[in-house]
Each structure stands twice: as structure tokens, then as C-alpha cells.
Design a protein around this nucleic acid. Structure first.
Length: 925
DNA sequence: TAGATGGACTA
DNA sequence: ATAGTCCATCTAC
């Protein structure tokens, strides 16, 4: 790797680019000292420097930051970076300490006024190249690609992507020396550099490939056709300026040359002090050499642990793997050797490869395993393309594996294990010992840090880019299924899946273990829930497809009639379901006044708007009815019957356990959590969710669970009392706000109170409440003031929650499930306010989610004990569980289920579940 | 053909 | 005003 000149490579760190990026990493944003000084960006940059030093042990690290104030580019072009918001205070406050730390580490630190860090880096790289010194520039900024030469490479330390000359060509499609031309053509929104309108990377590459340079493109501008050609010609005058702005200056006058910038000895005393001040415990431990004797601080006393989870950093540490050994298994001996190894290791990671992502249709094609990092095996059993080698038989392999997979002693590690469990259940294997799902580990660790699919997790936590399924199967219509993929390619992919899953577990679980409450959510709620959800998915629900077909038909007729009526009223034919066409007709042709605009600025045709317009005009009413009905038809009556499994004759959803920010489940394909209920037409769809012969549908839902949780959390005396006395809570609220006796509350007053109660759960603003109730803002504010006067405990709770969110960067449920709120201290007022509302809502919504999950566990445990196939839990809809129960035992079973749900949590107010029963879901509700 | 947009459905 | 999923349309590739 080192070059012939045998000099240490120069490692130039673009400190400012990393500082900004680290600042925006949610996981880092939550970090601060006990006294509230934010440290996330400091931590991020230091971690990055640390990993650079590890990757380039003999490298000569130099760190460069932007200086304060304007640069020569602003003189050239006053609008340069004029759009940039000022630097947020919580970032600014991290810069000086970071500089101090870097200097104490003994690393040369350059901050040169009048130019940007890029220019300093460019200058040093050029000098180094002239001396024959290899240079590596560590940056996240694509503009730096212009500096790449034979002797200068870029490394993005956050993604671990290295770019040399060929890399630049591959990534950008142009050579490094064309990068400036490329940037000039595209312009830069962020830096406010003008470019050619509508010219993105694709067009820029196309032109530069044709004409070589910006000059070439300019010379040939008159030949470019179409709108984009006009745009190019419009831009001709300012393109030279854009070129100048995009050019990194490589002749900055510096006090020291590249050669003179050498590290000095670290000032350990100063460093220690700084690390202590900023509570950078891991770095401190490394500095004082105590890292190996005490790998984790968590095994110590409790108070320390509590502190560690509020202000300290929990690091996800990946295992180092020097090389990987992935094996494809074709014969019985090799297989049995692996089997013995798995058995011996007491825990292993596995993954199934199948023909479909739909668990009801999937057929097993192969399995992969790993029990030490870097080593994994793939066992193909059903690749059937022409010329596929002979493979072990699926039945034999599964028969051998069955005892292991069903053992409660041997622990399983997987990524989205619910899928594998469902697939294997079709081969008569009931997986047990389900201990670690890496998807859920990541979710419990931080629900919003990343998506929780394997590719994303590997990139984020292992710094590893996995082979993606599309890479081996292709995409679009001609995507192959797994059985059609060449075994050698498939084998590497599949083995990597198992290996990465194991490595993710080894990285994530120890991190999770440092957060005792989240570990409990993982161990006591989420992992036990996984097989329960698998059973519900597998069991499915029964629908009456004929009834839905009838409804589709009658909806179709009504829609046709509405369409004709709408065309008549509009005086022209148009597509009723096109908001765009409707906008034109309503607001241009019919000249109806615009009430509200969409986020993009177009006049809105949303329901609330049409509702209002319907008072004065006939067309909006027709559109409204059409909208509602066509939604019902396309999403429900047409679609649901098509999704019935031919295998079971029932409808099987997928519940997702790692999607929502707050801890709720979500449901897809189909979504059973948004089946209509409000409109008359909508309820008809619920009538198609039926019980099997001799069975009843029982639906049990929690009454006002989120408000009860609010009462519990706020411990407001009035609210707790109201619930304890079993009052109609909206009515009771109305009586307080409007200062009337309970029995004199009007229905209008109750409605307002109900809106306020909902508003509270949603982190209400006077603005939002006013909109909801169609009243003035002042009036809404008066209602709120009165509410908080009557329920002061709630006000205190809200204030404390905002305060807590702001100081620690997250809020939590009563079981300690956390939601991080990266925007809680945002400078942008809108984002900050939105984060505050989420902060208010999450503890209530999330605690409700925790409680119903606990109820599901209790119910499932009881059902397993009963082992009675006349009772089945079929659906969960956030605060409601739906069952199929044989009519002979429906009464006593329902009573028992209600009791289990009522006892799922102990709050300071009663937790009440209410049951309904019927032949279909509509009747049961 | 993928992604954005605007709208509608749920708790 | 909190949290989601899914649909049709339109646009850009």
C-alpha cells in the first residue's frame, strides 16, 4: 500500500464536513454532558479521527476546519452560500472544545481565514504530490473529487467508501479533471451556485462525455435541442463564474508546508481533563488504558448505569473480521460437520432463502448458518435452473435440522426471524429458542436511527456494504427468484446474510445491554411477542369475498353515476380522481376562491376544503362522495378478495415490529389496521370480516387508553378522580371547561371537550385546536387556558416532558421504551415545534402500545395453556384485539380475555377493556 | 418504471 | 394536531 518513496502518507481530514454530518446523526444528537453541553458532533468527529488512525497506522493526520467569516468566494459572488442558515448554537458550542482536543492530541490543526477548508486541503494535497507523498483526503464532500489524482485518494470515513481515479469515474461518470465542469453545469443549491436549470448529474455527464470540457459544452450550446438547450443557453454567461466558484484553490499561502506538518506528542494531562469535562468516557478509558480490564461499566452499581443512559454515549462496537470464509455445502458429510458445530456452539445465526417475500407463498430454496464471525455456510436444497448442480434433499436437510431449530436450549439469532419462522412452519418445523432478532435489537436500541433492514444495519453499525438481493437477482420484471440464481452467487449472498446477522448481534446486543430499560423492552416485550405475531399472521382472518364482490359492483354503479353528474356540473369531461385536473376546473374554470394550498403551493382540493365549498357550490359534494367511495372500492372491496391465500382460504397480513417511531405495530399486505368504520358504506366492509361456521367474532378494545395513560403520567388529581369514578371523560372535561354541572353539558360542549382531549394527546397548539373546531385562535386559546387551569397537573406534565426531551434528547414510555427526538433543539422553529408535539405524544401512544403488547403476551400464554383450537387471536388494531371463538364457549372465554387485558398494566386509574360480539367484525364492534 | 404528490382510510 | 398504509395520477428517466 505504501508508495515507493517510503514516506508516511498524508491524511487530510476535512473536519468541517464531518462536523456538520456528525451533528445531524440522530444517534449522536442525543449526546450531551450532564450539564447540558451537547457533545454529539465532538464525539462523531473524534470517533472518525480515531478510526482513520487505526486504518492508516503510519499516516500523518492533519485536521482542517473552515475559519469564521467570509471567504474570497463571497467577494467573487456576494450571493455565495447566502442561503445558508446561521450555524446552530448547539453546534457552534462544540467547535472550540473540539479544536482544543485535537490540539491536545498533538495533531496539526489548520484553520485559515479567507479560504475554506477545501482550499487548504487542496493546497496541501498538491504540495504533497509534488514531494511524492501519497495523500488520502478524508471527507464526505463530493466536490473534493476534483482533487483526486494518481497520488491523491478520497476516503469517506462514515461510509468507508474510498475513491481513486477509477472510483471517481465509476461514481460520477466523469474523470476527476472534469469534476469542476460537472459541478458548474449542475450548480449547487446549498452553496447557492447557479447552474443550468434542470441539469442534473445525468445531463452533465452526457454533455461532458460528448464535448469533453465545459468549454466544449459552451461552444456547442446552440446544438442542444429542447427546453434544456434553452436553459443551457440562458446559463452561458454565468457558467464561467460557477466554474470559478466550484474550483478548489490549490495555491493558498500557508505558514507551514505539507512536510512541516508533523504530529507532536499528546498532552495527556490536558486531554484527560478535556475528556472528563466533556464526559467522553470511552476515549478517556482508552487514554488511561483501563479499557481491557473493564470492558463495560454497566456491570457496576445501579446509579452509575442510570447515569450512563442519560448523558453517556453507548457505542456500537463491531467485531473485526480479517477475512471471510463462506462455504457452500453439497454433501452430507460437510453438512453433518456443520450441524455438530452449530449444536456445540449453543447459539447460532441462520437465514432462509426462498422463492417469495410473501411468507404464505414462499418455498424454501436454501438455508445459511453462522456461529463465528466471518465464517458461514450456505446449504442449497432447491435451486432448479438448467444445469444446477446436484444438491442435498430439502427433506433430509430439514429432518437433520429440526431438533436444533426446535430446541429451546440452542438459541437462535436472525434478522426478521418472524419470516423464517413462518416459512419453516410450512415444513412442520416450529422454531423455538427464539432469542435474538437483530432487526428488533436495532429497533429497541434506537427506533429512528436507521431503517432496520439488514442492508441498512450493516452499513450503519458494521460499516459494511452487503451484497444486495438486486445485485444477484436483477430487478424489475425480469428479476429472478432465488431458486433460479446461480448457486455460487447465491451462496455468497446467503452466507453473508447469516454472517452479517451474527456480527450485527455481536455489535448491537452488548450496546443494548448497557441500557437496562430498553433491554427489558427487548427481552420482556418484543422478543416474546414475535412468535405471537407469527401465529396471528399464520392463522389469518376469514372474509366473505362474495359479499365484497357485490359491494364492488354496487360501488361501481354509484361511481359511474357520480362521474356523469360531475362532468355535467363541470361542463366538461375530466378524471375525478386527478387532484390536478380538479384544481384546474374548480379554481381556474369555475373561478371558485382558493381556501387552502398544498405544501407545494397548488390550491388544495382536500376534504376539508371541498366540505366548505360544498355549502356554496354543487360540484364539490359530488367529488367528495366519489373520492370516498372510490377509495373504498380500490383499496378494500376490489383488493381484499385478491389477497386471500389459496393455501388457507384466508387473509394473511404482515405485522411489522420495527417500523413505527413510537412502538406501535404496523400492518401491510393488506393493512388490517385501517379497515373503514366511520361511514355507513365503510362499515359494510367490516361486515365482510366474518367468523367461521359455529364461531363468533369478538372484538375487545381499551376504552380511552391514551387519556388514561395521560392521567397516570401526569397524576393530575381531577383527571385521576374522573377516571376512578368511571365518568364519561369528555363530558367531565366539558363540565370543567365550561363550568357547568355534569348533567347540563350540551352535546356541542362535549364535542369541543373531546377535541381538546384529543388535542392534548397530539401535543396540541391553539392553532390546531382552532382549525379542528372551526373557531378563532383566541377562543381556542381560552379553552386551553381553562383546561390547564382545571387540570394543572396536566400542564406541569406537558412542561416537564418538553423540558426532559430538550435536555436529554429523548422521551420514554413507562416501560422505558425510548423515542429520540433529533429536532427537539432545532433552530428551525417549525421542526422544533413538531418535535415537541411528538415528545408529548410518544409517551402516551408508546405506553398504550406497550400495554396492548403485554396484553397480547398474557392472552397468548393463556391460549397456549388452553391448547384449544376453538379460540384464536386474529388481529390487533392498536387498542383492540380481535378473536374468533366457538359459540359454545364464547361467553366465558370473552370474560377471561377481558380480564387478561384489564390486568395487562397497573395504572393509577382503572384500565378498562370492553368487548363486543357478533357474526362479523361490524357487529362485534 | 420509480418516485413524488395529494388524497383517503385507521387508532 | 400524533402515529401509520395504500391508492391513482403525473412526471422524469
Amino acid at each position: 500500500m505504501s508508495n515507493s518513496a517510503n514516506l508516511s502518507p498524508l491524511i487530510l481530514v476535512d473536519g468541517s464536513s464531518y462536523l456538520f454530518r456528525a451533528y445531524h446523526v440522530p444517534y449522536l444528537q442525543a449526546l450531551s454532558t450532564a450539564s447540558g453541553q451537547p457533545t454529539g458532533a465532538i464525539t462523531g468527529v473524534l470517533n472518525m479521527i480515531r478510526s482513520l488512525k487505526k486504518d492508516y497506522p503510519n499516516g500523518n493526520v492533519v485536521v482542517v476546519f473552515d475559519a469564521k467569516g467570509k471567504t474570497f468566494r463571497s467577494d467573487m459572488y456576494p450571493e455565495y452560500k447566502a442561503n445558508r442558515p446561521p450555524m446552530p448554537d448547539d453546534l457552534r458550542s462544540q467547535i472550540a472544545p473540539l479544536h482544543e482536543i485535537i490540539e491536545a492530541m498533538g495533531l496539526p490543526l489548520l484553520v485559515v481565514p479567507g479560504v475554506e477548508a477545501d482550499d487548504v486541503i487542496g493546497t496541501l494535497a498538491k504540495q504533497a504530490s509534488e514531494q511524492g507523498i501519497e495523500t488520502v483526503i478524508s471527507t464526505g464532500d463530493k466536490d473534493m473529487a476534483q482533487l483526486v489524482t494518481e497520488h491523491v485518494r478520497l476516503i469517506n470515513t462514515m461510509t468507508n467508501v474510498e475513491l481513486d481515479v477509477d472510483g471517481v469515474i465509476e461514481k460520477f461518470g466523469v474523470k476527476p479533471e472534469q469534476i469542476i465542469d460537472y459541478l458548474a453545469l449542475m450548480g449547487d443549491k446549498v452553496d447557492n451556485i447557479p447552474g443550468v436549470v434542470k441539469c442534473g448529474p445525468k445531463t452533465a455527464v452526457k454533455w461532458l462525455t460528448e464535448h469533453g470540457t465545459l468549454e466544449g459544452v459552451i461552444a456547442n450550446a446552440d446544438k442542444v435541442k429542447g427546453k434544456i438547450g434553452e436553459n443551457l443557453r440562458d446559463a452561458l454567461e454565468q457558467l464561467p463564474l460557477s466554474y470559478q466558484l466550484a474550483t478548489i484553490k490549490c495555491d493558498v499561502e500557508l505558514e507551514q508546508t505539507a512536510e512541516q506538518l508533523q504530529p507532536t506528542a499528546a498532552d495527556v494531562e490536558k486531554l484527560t481533563e478535556l475528556y472528563q469535562t466533556f464526559e467522553l468516557r470511552r476515549l478517556l478509558a482508552e487514554l488511561t488504558g483501563s479499557s481491557d480490564s473493564e470492558p463495560q461499566e454497566t456491570s457496576k452499581a445501579k446509579p452509575k448505569q442510570a447515569k450512563a443512559s442519560t448523558s453517556d454515549e453507548v457505542i456500537v462496537q463491531a467485531v473485526e473480521v480479517s477475512e471471510t470464509q463462506y462455504q457452500i455445502i453439497y454433501n452430507q458429510d460437510e453438512f453433518l460437520t456443520w450441524l455438530a458445530k452449530l449444536k456445540e456452539s449453543k447459539r447460532f445465526a441462520f437465514d432462509t432463502e426462498t422463492t417469495s417475500i410473501d411468507y404464505m407463498q414462499a418455498e424454501l430454496v436454501g438455508l445459511s448458518f453462522a456461529c463465528e464471525p466471518g465464517k458461514a455456510a450456505y446449504v442449497p436444497v432447491a435451486h432448479d435452473y438448467v444445469g444446477a448442480p446436484e444438491q442435498l434433499s430439502r427433506d433430509w436437510v430439514l429432518a437433520q435440522l429440526k431438533p436444533l431449530l426446535e430446541s429451546t436450549e440452542i438459541l437462535k439469532i436472525g434478522q426478521n426471524l418472524k419470516y423464517d419462522i413462518n416459512v419453516l412452519s410450512h415444513y412442520d418445523i416450529e422454531v423455538q429458542g427464539i432469542a435474538f432478532d437483530t432487526m428488533i435489537e436495532s429497533y429497541c436500541f434506537n427506533s429512528i436511527a436507521t431503517r432496520h433492514n439488514m442492508d441498512a444495519l450493516a452499513e450503519k453499525y458494521l460499516d459494511h456494504k452487503t451484497v444486495h438481493f438486486e445485485d444477484i437477482a436483477g430487478k424489475g420484471a425480469k428479476q429472478l427468484t432465488f431458486n433460479q440464481i446461480d448457486i455460487e452467487k447465491a451462496g455468497h449472498y446467503a452466507a453473508e446474510d447469516a454472517d452479517i446477522t451474527l456480527r450485527l448481534h455481536l455489535a448491537l446486543f452488548p450496546a443494548l445491554e448497557q441500557l437496562s430499560e430498553q433491554l427489558a423492552v427487548f427481552n420482556d416485550i418484543e422478543m416474546p411477542l414475535l412468535p405471537v405475531l407469527a401465529r396471528m399472521e399464520q392463522g389469518g382472518v376469514l372474509i366473505d369475498s362474495d359479499l365484497l364482490a357485490e359491494q364492488s359492483q354496487s360501488l361501481g354503479q354509484r361511481l359511474a353515476a357520480l362521474e356523469i353528474e360531475a362532468h355535467n356540473l363541470a361542463g366538461q369531461s375530466f378524471n375525478l380522481s386527478s387532484p390536478k385536473q380538479l384544481q384546474k376546473i374548480l379554481f381556474e374554470d369555475l373561478k371558485i376562491p382558493v381556501i387552502k394550498k398544498t405544501p407545494k403551493g397548488a390550491p388544495s382540493t382536500a376534504e376539508e376544503v371541498l366540505q366548505e365549498l360544498a355549502l356554496d357550490y354543487p360540484l364539490p359534494k359530488v367529488i367528495l362522495e366519489n373520492r370516498g367511495l372510490s377509495k373504498l372500492k380500490s383499496t378494500y372491496t376490489d383488493k381484499l378478495p385478491l389477497m386471500v391465500s389459496s393455501r388457507s382460504g384466508r387473509l394473511h397480513t404482515s405485522y411489522h415490529q420495527a417500523v413505527t417511531a413510537t412502538g406501535r405495530l404496523s400492518s401491510t399486505e393488506p393493512n388490517l389496521q385501517n379497515i373503514p368504520i366511520r361511514s355507513e358504506q365503510g362499515r359494510k366492509i367490516r361486515q365482510a370480516f366474518i367468523a367461521p361456521k359455529d364461531h363468533k367474532i369478538v372484538a375487545i378494545d381499551y376504552s380511552q387508553i391514551e387519556l388514561r395513560i395521560m392521567a397516570h403520567l401526569s397524576n393530575d388529581k381531577g383527571l385521576v378522580t374522573a377516571f376512578s369514578e368511571g365518568k364519561d371523560i369528555h363530558k367531565a372535561t366539558a363540565a370543567e371547561i365550561f363550568a357547568v354541572p355534569l348533567d347540563q353539558v350540551t352535546s356541542e360542549q362535549r364535542r369541543s371537550a373531546k377535541a381538546i382531549n384529543f388535542g392534548l394527546i397530539y401535543g396540541m397548539s391553539a392553532f390546531g385546536l382552532a382549525k379542528q373546531l372551526h373557531i378563532g385562535r383566541n377562543q381556542a386559546q381560552e379553552y386551553m387556558d381553562m383546561y390547564f387551569k382545571r387540570y394543572p397537573g396536566v400542564l406541569t406534565y406537558m412542561e416537564e416532558t418538553r423540558e426532559q426531551a430538550s435536555s436529554q434528547g429523548y422521551v420514554e414510555t413507562i416501560y422505558g421504551r425510548r423515542l429520540y427526538l433529533p429536532d427537539i433543539n432545532a433552530r428551525n422553529g417549525m421542526r422544533k415545534k413538531a418535535a415537541e408535539r411528538a415528545a408529548i405524544n410518544a409517551p402516551m401512544q408508546g405506553t398504550a402500545a406497550d400495554i396492548i403488547k403485554k396484553a397480547m403476551l398474557a392472552v397468548d400464554t393463556w391460549l397456549q395453556e388452553q391448547a384449544d383450537d376453538r379460540i384464536k387471536m386474529t388481529m390487533q388494531v392498536h387498542d383492540e384485539l380481535i378473536f374468533e371463538i366457538h359459540q359454545d364457549i364464547v361467553e366465558e372465554t370473552t370474560q377471561k380475555l377481558v380480564e387478561l387485558m384489564n390486568n395487562a398494566a397497573e395504572l393509577s386509574v382503572p384500565l378498562i377493556a370492553e368487548a363486543g360480539m357478533g357474526d362479523n367484525w361490524d357487529e362485534a364492534h
